[in-house]
Computed example of a mutant assay.
Amino acid sequence: MNKQEQAASVAVIGSTSEAYARKEEVERCIFSADFMRFIMAQPSPDYWTPRPVPLVGACRYCGQTRPTAEAPAGSIKTQEDADAWASRTCNCEQGRRLANVWTARGRINALFADFSTDVRDMLVEIAELVQDEEIGATSTALDEYSKCKIYKNAKGVLFITRTDTSTRQESV
């Protein structure tokens, strides 16, 4: 065999092995595609069902993030709710102040439920002023029988007091 014949036979052998490799690759790709179609046609197991990603709230004041999984169930529906909740539960100074104001708002709404929302909003604003130590204490007569006293003690605890007096007089 001369050199030209050897080179031709090597070329044929090389092209044959390349063709065989390509054929295997094509068969492998066809098998992979068929296998993927088979898998995609199967129902997905429960553990593959996508679950909602819990929101993460960020404090408005310091930026500290907090997962909302600790929040009361159903109380957080949007990102704004998550941020407000994170701000109220944050340990920064402004977060603690906001938590105190929210607690005061709830207590005022409970104690003075028989008064209008305007009166309750005014009392919340007064509670904020006392909390921020812009005023020391206040006593407000809401009507002829009810009084509200809002003050802060030396430990920084905010007190909201309702006093109802009733006078009973009879004449003969």
Rank of each mutant, 00 (worst) to 15 (best):
D164Q: 13
I160T: 02
K149E: 02
Q94M: 13
E128C: 11
V130I: 04
Q6C: 07
M1D: 01
G74Q: 02
E93Y: 13
D83A: 04
T138W: 00
K147H: 07
A137T: 01
S17H: 06
R22G: 15
E5C: 01
E125V: 13
M1H: 01
A154Q: 09
F31H: 00
K77M: 07
A21I: 07
A82S: 03
A73N: 04
C92M: 07
D114C: 12
D46H: 15
E70M: 09
G95P: 06
T161N: 06
I13N: 10
M1R: 03
D83Y: 03
V130M: 01
A113D: 11
L98T: 14
I39C: 01
K23G: 14
R162A: 07
A99I: 14
A69G: 06
T161L: 13
D83Q: 02
K149C: 00
T68M: 10
S146W: 11
F35C: 00
Q42V: 06
A71Y: 05
R28M: 07
W48F: 15
R105T: 15
A8H: 05
Q94I: 12
C62E: 05
D83W: 01
T89G: 10
C59M: 10
K155P: 04
R97F: 12
P50S: 11
L123G: 09
R51D: 11
A33W: 01
S116T: 15
D132Q: 05
T49P: 08
T165C: 08
R88E: 13
T117M: 12
T165D: 11
Q4T: 03
L142G: 07
S32P: 00
Y145V: 13
A21G: 12
A110H: 07
N153R: 02
T89L: 11
A104I: 02
A154S: 08
S87Y: 08
A58V: 06
E70F: 05
P72M: 09
A110W: 04
G63S: 11
L158C: 03
Q131C: 07
A33M: 06
C59G: 03
I13T: 12
I126C: 06
Y151N: 01
F35H: 00
T165I: 11
E128H: 08
T163R: 09
S44Y: 11
S171T: 13
G74K: 03
E18A: 14
G95D: 13
A104S: 03
V12T: 15
A137M: 01
